[in-house]
Amino acid sequence: MGKVKIKKTSTIIDMTAMSDVTVLLLTFFMLTSTFLQKEPVQVITPPATSDAPVPDQKFVQVLVSPEGKVYLNLTGAKDSTLLSNEFFRTEVLKSAYDEYKKSHPSAPDLTVSQTKEFSKIGTFGVPMKDLTKWLDMRLDQRDEFLKEKGGIPIQMSVKDGARNEFQIWLNAIKTVLYNKDPELFSNLIGGDGIGIKAGQDSPFSLVDVVMDNMKTEEINNLVLMTSLKIEEEGK
């Protein structure tokens, strides 16, 4: 009886083709990707047929969580050093905190390192009284705090003339833009500089209060963030 002969075949597979494919895919993802913004809450924006893109610079985003908490995200200009992210945020923080201190003289001063920390943060939104504490926290604690106790106080004040904290921030943004970059200021007033992002299931009252605050600060022109819906009919 002859032994069953097992044919020895090479187990090495040529990976060159595979490598080609993966490199192609990688290139595709690298070119098309826009990184997910780190946000304290994920919201699904309502669908609409409008296809105007969200500006990726010189933009103020108001994020409204399903619980009605409000966060802000400031983006400066990408190209110029005139109003970079860091500079924009620092100036807004200084201006807003100064205004807050006028009515709360006992509030602690901002330190340089706190201001610097703030300039690196994308989405923020804590009550002013917690702001210095929040900026001193570790990164993970900060995210936790944003989720649990965050949200800029937004209730319309009954007392005439007194700004609530959200209005203080809006006013600070307006002031900074007006003083530092008039072109950006007209951009903001013209409606391309500020947007509301809210979940599609949210009751309108959550968005309404944000709009009311904006109206009070004379920002009447804004955009709503939507996700693209394809209409059957075409253009």
């Binding site: 098309t32 990707s33 826009t34 409008s50 105007a52 409606g191 109206k215 022109n221 939507t226």
Partner: peptide, 15 residues
């Protein structure tokens, strides 16, 4: 890490 769905915007003017 990427978002394929880019957000769009809808213009609105408030009274």
């Amino acid at each position: 890490c990427t978002t394929m769905l880019k957000s769009q915007t809808l213009n609105l003017i408030l009274p």
